[in-house]
Design a protein around this nucleic acid. Structure first.
Lengths: 346, 346
DNA sequence: CTGAAAGCGCTAACAC
DNA sequence: GTGTTAGCGCTTTCAG
């Protein structure tokens, strides 16, 4: 598999290759970059020598000489709670981006911290120490020192999340949350549901807003009643009772729930009241995470295509690295509904 | 917060600092390493200049000159399933090790792959490209090309997981699985349980073996019946039925379950048979992950102290980096039982 | 199309 | 204690 040739041929340099191929080091360097100004014959010769010697470029030297690190910084959101960290999203994204990066011979360095200030500091260091050429921010907040810092220093970056600030010439990669909201409503309507409630744990989230908007639009178009969102937040006891009240008041037969984890908790909660999903109440949720497959009924949930999200963000960032753009850009990654057991025809 | 002084003082080098402090670049370099052969006064002078200029060392240059990368490679296990990736353990470990590393001004590079061969290749690259001085392997398998590669090339590394190969002068950092198994049994016994079953989803796992051993030992010492493990694997339908049979046959009142996720699934399964936890059956499980707090009853579960696991592995690796050791070493990280609602007195 | 040569920013002997 | 001086391995003008 890995060429190791005879024993410890450690630290083969460009010079060794040059010597063996009978060319100048600079020619080897150019071959490495597949420069168009090197003849095919020479390239072949050089590549052969590289292979024979098991040559691997020393990135430190490349960085120093070129000023490029060939690596991207991945900024995770502030890790407030264990719960946030436990969201499968992040690991999936990390592995996706890692895979994409290694295909482009880039590496990924991860910045984590407990606060936005922490993160800003990390990013500052990564930049100044030359550990990353550009950044991918894995969250989107209105007031974000990290974003400000990057903007101010003209460092290329993309944001994975809802576009907050379309003025700033920022590239956003996001799911089509509005589209999912629409489809959730349409899907349930098609199954004969009419009184459909939208449930979230937090009214502030941008992701929530977009999904709710999509739901409202679709409901209106279908001539079905559009209700305000109902909040289900296990940390606020009053919302739990209120949730039940709204359910009966509206005679809801289906719920659109902001994410799988909330859906699981809601199913639990409903069971205290002898309400069964999907028999008494259908539920559709978002993310198609492991939580969707943990509890019975398995959840019908929107797959948000994390791998594609990762691929696209890297692609966009690399694009920016090549030629910085002054334009704002918003990219939507397609989703698809994974229908399982939590929705039934009414 | 971050010193930026006047505008874009970008790329301040050691020379600029030297100039400003009126010393030689090498003196600056030594101050950076806090070398003992520089007088305190000069250090102060130099540090002042660094601060004023907002100097940040260029790691690429440091690497090239010193041959050290100041960064560690973190090797995740092959990502076979979404489920494996979704284990909160990995994210928690990543953040823990990141925090620990940044305190020691080290960075963490992550290697992921779909197979052990993939990973070996990644590790090879990381090494040859000089992206990591040493490695932390986040899994432990008997036949592991990654381990072999590292061993063969005399690269420092530590393994987080069960010691498989005590011959190889490898450092292992692990939880005290046997201790947890013991305590699980003792805890349940103390609560008046006698017929206690150990449940796992996989008889092959080393972690399982150790925990089961601990359980058996303790049970024997307590003069309680030691039963063979019972398998509950949702992918193998026959185990599910068998599981129920064993439960009634042994008249079990308590279960020790290999991890939180399995426990959640088991609770679900039991509810089909109108069996309630903890009223009909107490359950104690391992990992204290988010899954322990997702379902009612909240699970009594062993906290395996991931942060400490991360800290210790980094510490050990850095130790090896300073002076390679030819001795095998096994480090146990303490645990503690987080008692919640899934166990009651009988 | 290829070679020569000057660094990139820092470290590490070796002097003094 | 501090300065001098070679590089580390690679990129990149500039010649030819």
């Amino acid at each position: 598999m890995i060429e190791d040739m005879k024993g410890e041929a450690d630290m083969v340099t460009i010079k060794d290759v040059a010597l063996r191929a009978g060319v100048n080091p600079s020619t080897v360097s150019r071959t490495l970059k597949d420069s168009s100004s090197i003849s095919q014959t020479t390239k072949d010769k050089v590549r052969k020598a590289m292979k024979e010697l098991g040559y691997v470029p020393n990135v430190a030297a490349q960085m120093l000489a070129s000023g490029l690190t060939q690596s991207v910084g991945l900024v995770l959101p502030p890790l407030t709670s264990q719960e946030r960290l436990s969201q499968p999203f992040f690991m999936e994204f990390i592995t996706a981006i890692n895979a994409a990066a290694s295909k482009k011979s880039q590496t990924v360095s991860i910045a984590t911290g407990e606060s936005l200030e922490d993160l800003q500091h990390q990013v500052h260091l990564m930049h100044r120490q030359k550990r990353a050429d550009g950044f991918i921010i894995l969250y989107s907040e209105k007031e974000d020192p990290v974003k400000d810092y990057l903007l101010e220093h003209h460092l290329p970056f993309v944001v994975v999340g809802v576009a907050q600030d379309t003025s700033g010439a920022i590239t956003y990669i996001d799911n089509d949350n509005r589209g999912m909201g629409r489809q959730a409503a349409e899907f349930l309507a098609e199954k004969g549901h009419q009184n459909i409630l939208f449930v979230t744990d937090d009214l502030e989230g941008q992701v929530y807003s977009e999904r709710y908007e999509g739901y409202s639009e679709a409901m209106a178009e279908l001539n079905l009643p559009v209700y305000p969102s109902v909040v289900f937040d296990r940390h606020r006891a009053e919302t739990l009772q209120d949730f039940m009240d709204r359910l009966t008041e509206k005679q809801a037969t289906a719920l659109v729930v902001i994410d799988d984890l909330s859906a699981v908790r809601i199913i639990q909660w409903l069971s205290f009241y002898q309400l069964r999903v999907p028999d008494d109440l259908s539920i559709i949720s978002f993310n198609n995470s492991i939580y969707a497959k943990i509890i019975h009924p398995y959840l019908s949930s929107f797959d948000i295509n994390i791998a594609e999200l990762g691929r696209k963000s890297l692609e966009e960032l690399l694009g920016l690295l090549e030629k910085p753009s002054k334009e704002s850009k918003k990219i939507l990654v397609p989703f698809h509904l994974k229908d399982r057991e939590s929705v039934i025809r009414r």
